[in-house]
C-alpha cells in the first residue's frame, strides 16, 4: 500500500537511482566538529557535531553570549549537552535521532533526495540558508503527502534539545533573568 510513509521511503530509495546525477551535484561540505571540551561523545558523530555547530547559533540567536569567544564556548557546551541528553533517552528514541542526523549529515548518496524533499541546506556556512531551512521544517505541513509529519517533528526535536541544553546551562541564566535554584542553607 502506498502510504505517506512508504512514499517518503520510496523517495529515499530513488535517491540511489539518482546517484549518477548526484556525482555532478556539489555535496554540501559538512563543517568540522568543534572540540568536545574533554567530553567523550557517546551518540553524536563528528558530522553531527559539525552540523550542530552551525544550527545552534541560528536556533539560539541573541540568547547566546555576544563575544565571539564566549559564543563559541557556549555552542560547544550546547553540543555536549545534546550528547548527554540523547544518551539518556530510550533506545528507540535514540534511533529516531540517528535518522534525523542521517538526513542532516548527508553529504553523499542521500544528499540530493533529502535536499529536494526537505530543503536541508546546500551550504552550512550561510546562516540565512540555515534560517530558511529551519523555517521550512517549522512550517511544513504535518499532514504532508510526501513526508508525513517528519519535518515538523524533526524541527521540534532539534529545537527542543538545543533549547533544553542551553537553558539548563548556567551561562544562559543571566540572559533569561534566572537567579538559579534557591540556596537552601
Amino acid at each position: 500500500m502506498l502510504t505517506r510513509r512508504n512514499l517518503f521511503k520510496l523517495g529515499a530509495v530513488s535517491g540511489v537511482t539518482l546517484l549518477a546525477i548526484e556525482t555532478f551535484h556539489a555535496s554540501p561540505e559538512i563543517p568540522p566538529a568543534p572540540d568536545g571540551l574533554g567530553h567523550s561523545f557517546e551518540i553524536l558523530t563528528p558530522e553531527d557535531r559539525g552540523v550542530l555547530s552551525k544550527l545552534t547559533p541560528v536556533i539560539l540567536a541573541e540568547a547566546l553570549p555576544e563575544s565571539t569567544e564566549d559564543r563559541e564556548l557556549a555552542v560547544k557546551e550546547v553540543i555536549v549537552g545534546w550528547d548527554i541528553a540523547v544518551s539518556g533517552l530510550p533506545p528507540l528514541t535514540q534511533h529516531e535521532i540517528r535518522k534525523l542526523f542521517s538526513v542532516l549529515d548527508s553529504n553523499f548518496m542521500l544528499s540530493l533526495t533529502p535536499r529536494l524533499l526537505t530543503g536541508v541546506p546546500g551550504a552550512w556556512d550561510d546562516p540565512s540558508e540555515i534560517e530558511f531551512f529551519l523555517n521550512t521544517w517549522r512550517l511544513s505541513d504535518p499532514e504532508s503527502l510526501l513526508t508525513g509529519n517528519e519535518l515538523r517533528v524533526g524541527y521540534m526535536g532539534m529545537v527542543e534539545i538545543t533549547m533544553a541544553s542551553w537553558y539548563a546551562n548556567k551561562r544562559s541564566w543571566d540572559f533569561c533573568g534566572y537567579a538559579g535554584p534557591p540556596v537552601l542553607y
Binding site: A61, A63, C176
Partner: peptide
Amino acid sequence: LQPMLMATALDGHGKFHAEIMRQRP
C-alpha cells in the same frame, strides 16, 4: 516557570524565541 521547561514549551526559535526568553521574569 523554570527556564528549561519554559524554553522547550514555546514554539519557534531564533529572535522570536530569544525575545520571549529575555523577558522571562
